[in-house]
């Protein structure tokens, strides 16, 4: 089990909503730092060091953002140098770094989120909002691969009949139209079987319940409660702007108070929650093993 895989999708969703919403709208360097590092650690815990290429891509993206901002944005009071009558300012460079870090952080949160939230978990989430929509989505997820497979079969069948060729543009289009019309018939005819199968099992008789294999366990409650408390601690500072941070024209942070320190600590803990739960689990296993 890797960080958050075994948790209830609702708990995971609440957690990600909290961590991403703050990380996305607050440009405070502390918050950005926690968000970025937390997201990266969470991702690396799940994937170890595999997928180096994708990391390289995001590093490049970060670099581009850092370079582009000062080239096009000339706000700021501290001019470092002038290129073609355009001033390059320190503030713009720092803003570039901050916003780059913020975006990369959010991207990595979403990367681990999409790994954790497999299609059935997403369906469960949707299902708790609208069971009907969840069923439609589930049927679609079932039908798309089936459709693809059948299309492939049709293409091959028509090819072997000599009726589908892809040597040139015109015959490709002609072949495509053939395959499409075969598939239309197939969908219409076989849809009847599916709908029979649904009626045979009582679809539409009474109001459906929504079954899932996910339970809301103790650790889900702990995660949700922790998330909510940490978010609640930050909330006043977010609303009053006590941790706001100005980049233009001059870099100015709000005064550090007890509340803002508390907010930083809360967000720090929040961003590292997946890491903490993972570490806790590892330690527990080590401990269990030594007992055995």
């Amino acid at each position: 089990m890797k960080a958050f895989d075994g948790y209830n999708p609702i708990a995971v969703f609440i957690y990600y909503a909290a961590v991403v919403s703050v990380g996305m709208f607050c440009m405070n360097p502390w918050i950005i730092g926690f968000s970025l590092v937390g997201a990266l650690v969470t991702f690396f815990i799940r994937n170890k060091l595999s997928g180096a290429k994708s990391h390289l891509f995001f590093l490049l993206m970060f670099a581009v953002m850092v370079i582009i901002n000062p080239l096009f944005n000339h706000n700021g009071v501290t001019v470092l140098l002038v290129i073609n009558d355009n001033p390059i300012t320190l503030e713009a460079i720092i803003y570039g770094i901050a916003s780059g870090a913020m975006i990369i952080g959010i991207i990595y949160w979403f990367r681990s989120f999409s790994q954790i939230m497999t299609s059935d978990k997403l369906l469960y989430l949707l299902g708790s909002i609208s069971p009907k929509f969840a069923l439609i989505l589930s049927m679609t997820l079932r039908y798309i691969p089936l459709f693809e497979k059948q299309t492939q079969k049709v293409v091959h069948a028509q090819q072997a009949l000599g009726l589908y060729r892809d040597d040139d543009f015109l015959s490709k289009i002609r072949g495509g139209i053939r395959v499409f019309s075969v598939m239309v018939t197939w969908v219409l005819e076989n849809g009847v079987i599916t709908s029979d199968s649904m009626t045979a099992r009582g679809y539409g008789i009474t109001k459906r319940t929504h079954f899932s294999i996910f339970k809301f366990r103790r650790h889900d409650i702990i995660l949700t409660v922790t998330t909510v408390i940490l978010f609640a601690v930050m909330l006043p500072t977010l609303i009053t702007g006590a941790i706001n941070f100005e980049y233009y024209p001059k870099i100015v942070g709000e005064e550090t108070t007890v509340f803002s320190v508390l907010a930083y600590i809360s967000y720090g803990i929040l961003a590292f929650l997946p890491t903490i739960t993972e570490a806790e689990e590892k330690i527990r296993w080590k401990y269990l093993k030594s007992k055995i």
């Binding site: 299609s119 059935d120 369906l123 069923l135 589930s138 049927m139 997820l141 079932r142 089936l146 076989n190 079987i193 599916t194 029979d196 199968s197 649904m198 045979a200 099992r201 009582g202 679809y203 539409g204 008789i205 009474t206 109001k207 459906r208 319940t209 929504h210 079954f211 899932s212 294999i213």
Partner: peptide, 30 residues
């Protein structure tokens, strides 16, 4: 009732969901 073509009778995307489908329709508790 079970019909001829195995593929087209399946409604949902996961095995567990397919098993639960009929019972969901009956409105049975989880």
């Amino acid at each position: 009732f079970v019909a001829q073509r195995p593929e087209e009778q399946i409604v949902t995307d996961k095995v567990w969901h397919e098993l639960a489908f009929g019972l969901e329709n009956m409105g049975l508790p989880k």
